[in-house]
Design a protein around this nucleic acid. Structure first.
Lengths: 125, 125
DNA sequence: CAGAATCCTTAGGGATACTG
DNA sequence: CAGTATCCCTAAGGATTCTG
């Protein structure tokens, strides 16, 4: 097993800590929320409108987690009706480049993946 | 809404196609499987041993999907007992750099995220 | 050895209704 | 407006057993 000792970074420690973070980041809604917030601070209702298909419940949960992780800031304005704005923190913004790298990969390989799937499905039908 | 028109790549089309791929790639086990296979071709049982915590069922499913997407090749040797080896395809290898970028981000920000969480939890307790 | 099949439990997440 | 609180249901996924 000697040759497998030099585990790559994704596996990291035993996978534990890093895996937990990747799980959180890679989450369907988290990615979309961060990507949407890249366009600037935005209030709750706007986020809800601009993230297609997200439920109000999941938007709330996603934002809470991002806030907890220090990736998003939440600002409440003492008005009525209430206004709450969300924005990426510096930490949050630092996530954009690697996230984009992955997105770019997905875009570039979209065609080949789709073709591979079609071929696979046709073969096993 | 004009200023939100220039949607970032992660959101892509309407999020549809790209999101589906990101969902697949970002999957907990997929990431780990690809990372493990980066170390070279490996048979089923070795993968099972080297991916901590994965069940045989999930390993099978993950490998099937990766094979379907053309990211992993599956080679069956006509022996008894049977031997099956998995390896990254060229497509699969191309995923490594962006995946590493994300992993590196997770490693680098692990401390700050953890600190932020602790602070958040202490605050709301 | 490399899975396929079955069973079973949990949790992710939608829909809806209510509140400060 | 910006959530919180419930209910409810599906599907992800673990444990176990069977097979070529």
């Amino acid at each position: 097993m000697e040759q497998y000792e030099h585990t790559c970074m994704i596996r990291g420690d035993g996978g534990k800590a890093i895996r937990a973070i990747l799980d959180r980041i890679c989450d369907k809604w988290t990615m979309l929320t961060v990507a949407t917030l890249e366009q600037g601070r935005m209030r709750f209702s706007h986020l809800h409108q601009h993230i297609p298909g997200i439920s109000q419940r999941m938007l709330t949960l996603t934002l809470r987690n991002l806030e907890r992780d220090g990736l998003v800031s939440r600002t409440v304005y003492a008005e009525v009706p209430p206004r709450v704005e969300y924005a990426l923190t510096l930490q949050g913004e630092s996530l954009i480049p690697p996230a984009l790298a992955l997105a770019r990969w997905a875009v570039e390989h979209n065609g080949e993946i789709q073709a591979s799937r079609d071929a696979y499905d046709a073969r096993s039908k």
